[in-house]
Each structure stands twice: as structure tokens, then as C-alpha cells.
């Protein structure tokens, strides 16, 4: 700062300017800007990964002073189906896979459908868009409690419609195996559809009308226009939506916890729900960390794709 002030009163020659800027042009300056972030990055991003791996290789007990090295024992346990850990872990992995396989296509298709409905101008367009996006701003626990009540075994809105308007028997959604997924999946679609819809709407807005005008001249109807123009041009967005939706579905936690508490009989217990149970209810931190590394390895496929998408953006503008 002082350098700047002194510079303005000295003669503006190259010789006078160079020493004035010297403090600023010091080779360490860029690193000083990055330093605060770097410290937090090292402590809370890099270190926990290494520390986690260390914990998973030791028998980590909060009540004990020593943490004996056990090598890959906790990883091996996960492949020994006689241990409850292995049974519960792979059950939870299977549940997470079921949820992901069902919910991802649903979340992409419904969001694209809504975006196509809203793409062309229509009366009340802003209102409809706000309505579909609105549930997404609710926090997961609010959404979970709401859908638990919607699908209440006896008197929720769904069963009220089922018994009083359709004249059927109440369906105990929350306590019936397999059917317990319905409240979780319906709630998740309702909750997250707006995000993907917004991404698709933005992408649809970027498609040049000239493609459709050319197709009109050739007499193309709605389906070929969608199949051969819209869908291929949406491919980059679909990839992005797919990756982020898969990652979000893998991380299923709040909905399972609040709507069904992982039940009935652990049939809706997600991987993260079980890992946290093992860590925070059973205090088996090493075992839980080993599981989170196993689970993280599967997720890595998709976080890597996410990274590739962002890296492409970074290179594109650099």
C-alpha cells in the first residue's frame, strides 16, 4: 500500500515503477492468497482420508489408550458372510442399489417430461415452474416427516384416498417389505424433480429453433423431432444429470432414516444409514470406516465422471 502511495508522487518512469511494485510482484504473493484455503484443505479434506485409512487398519476404540494394528481384518470381515457386519453391509449395499436403479431413471424421465411440458410458452409458466421446484427447497427431515404422514399406514392422505374415495383397504406402506420403498421413492421424486427439471429447461432453451424449423419443412412429427433433435442435443446435460442423480441416490440417508427408519427388517436401510449405525450406535469406528472406504470405492466411479465433466469445463475456458 505504501508503495502505491509513493509511486504516484515519483516520476512515472519504468525505473521508478519497478521498485514500487516489487512488494506486490514478490513470487510468494499468489501462494499467500491460497494459504488460508490450503490450510483448511489439508486439515479437513486431505488429512481425514489418510487418518480414515489408518483407523480402518487399526482396532480403534475410544475407551482404550492403545489402537492395535489389525491390517485388513475389517476389510476381510466384509467378505466373510458369517459376520453380521458383512450381512448387514451387503444388504444395505443391495438396498442402495435397488433405490438407485429405480429412482435414477424415474428422476431423469419425470424431470425431462416436465421440462418438455414447460419449454414452450404457456399461460402460468412461471407459476408451474415454481410449483415443481418448490418442494426442493425443503430440508430432508421436513420432507421425510411429511411423506411419512402422507403414507401413514392407516390415515395418511394416500390411505384416506385409498379407503374413502376408492373404497379399498388401507395399505400399511411403511411396515410392509418392498412396499416401504414407495413412500421413499415417491417422496424423493417429489422433492428433487425441480433441480433436474431446471437443468433440462436451461438446456432446452439453448437448442436453436432452426433445427425444428428444418424438421418442420421435412414434415417431421413430434416424436422424430424429439428422438433425432432434442434427445441427442440434450446428451451432455443428461450425462451431468445422470451422474449427479446417481451420486445423490447413493447417498440416500435422510429419507430412509425419517420415513421408515431403515425398516421393516432393514429392507430400506441404505449403505450410509448402516455405516453410521455401525459407527455411532455400535461405536465400531474402524469397522465403519472400512465400510465407508469400500462404499467410497464404488462411488468413485461416479465422482470420477463428475470430475471429468468439471475438468472439461475448466479446460474449455482456461
Amino acid at each position: 500500500m505504501r508503495g502505491v502511495a509513493s509511486m504516484s508522487v515519483t516520476t512515472p518512469t519504468g525505473a521508478a515503477r519497478r521498485p514500487a511494485r516489487l512488494g506486490d510482484a514478490h513470487p510468494l504473493v499468489p501462494y499467500l492468497y491460497i494459504l488460508p484455503f490450503a490450510l483448511f484443505f489439508l486439515v479437513f479434506v486431505v488429512y481425514p482420508v489418510g487418518f480414515g485409512f489408518y483407523v480402518s487398519l487399526h482396532r480403534f476404540d475410544l475407551l482404550s489408550d492403545t489402537q492395535p494394528f489389525v491390517g485388513l481384518e475389517f476389510y476381510r470381515n466384509l467378505f466373510d458372510m458369517s459376520t453380521p457386519q458383512a450381512q448387514f453391509f451387503w444388504n444395505a449395499m443391495k438396498n442402495t442399489a435397488i433405490f438407485t436403479v429405480i429412482s435414477v431413471p424415474l428422476l431423469i424421465a419425470t424431470a425431462l417430461g416436465l421440462a418438455l411440458l414447460l419449454n414452450r410458452p404457456i399461460f402460468g409458466r412461471a407459476f408451474f415452474r415454481a410449483v415443481f421446484f418448490l418442494p426442493g427447497v425443503l430440508t430432508v427431515s421436513v420432507m421425510g416427516i411429511l411423506w411419512r404422514w402422507m403414507f401413514d399406514n392407516q390415515i395418511g392422505l394416500v390411505n384416506a384416498i385409498q379407503t374413502e374415495l376408492l373404497g379399498g383397504q388401507p395399505i400399511p406402506f411403511l411396515s410392509t417389505e418392498n412396499i416401504a420403498w414407495i413412500p421413499i421413492i415417491v417422496g424423493t421424486v417429489w422433492w428433487t424433480i425441480g433441480f433436474n427439471m431446471t437443468l433440462y429447461l436451461a438446456a432446452l432453451g439453448n437448442i436453436s429453433q432452426s433445427y425444428y424449423e428444418a424438421a418442420d419443412i421435412d414434415g417431421a412429427t413430434a416424436w422424430p423431432k424429439f428422438r433425432f433433435i432434442t434427445w441427442p442435443l440434450l446428451a451432455p446435460v443428461t450425462l451431468f444429470v445422470f451422474v449427479t442423480t446417481v451420486l445423490a441416490s447413493f447417498q440416500l440417508f435422510g429419507q430412509s432414516l425419517v420415513i421408515t427408519a431403515g425398516g421393516p427388517n432393514r429392507t430400506t436401510q441404505s449403505a450410509i444409514l448402516y455405516i453410521t449405525e455401525e459407527a455411532f450406535s455400535n461405536n465400531q469406528f474402524s469397522s465403519a470406516t472400512a465400510m465407508s472406504f469400500m462404499f467410497g470405492l464404488v462411488m468413485l466411479i461416479f465422482t470420477y465422471l463428475q470430475f471429468r465433466i468439471m475438468a472439461r469445463d475448466a479446460r474449455g475456458e482456461a
Binding site: 484443505f41 488429512y47 483407523v55 470406516t289 465407508s292 468413485l300 463428475q306 470430475f307
Partner: peptide, 25 residues
């Protein structure tokens, strides 16, 4: 530095959940 920071997005957060909790302790 930029690629290291961007690369950290590949770390699934579930991996750091328990170690970070132990750090908080």
C-alpha cells in the same frame, strides 16, 4: 494446485465422515 483442489471433488464425502467426527472429538 488447481487440479489437486478440483480432484478432491472425487473424494466421496462418506469416506471423511467418520475420521472427521473423530477429529471433532
Amino acid at each position: 494446485i488447481f487440479w489437486i483442489i478440483l480432484g478432491s471433488m472425487m473424494i466421496p464425502w462418506v469416506v471423511t465422515l467418520i475420521p472427521t467426527y473423530l477429529m471433532m472429538l
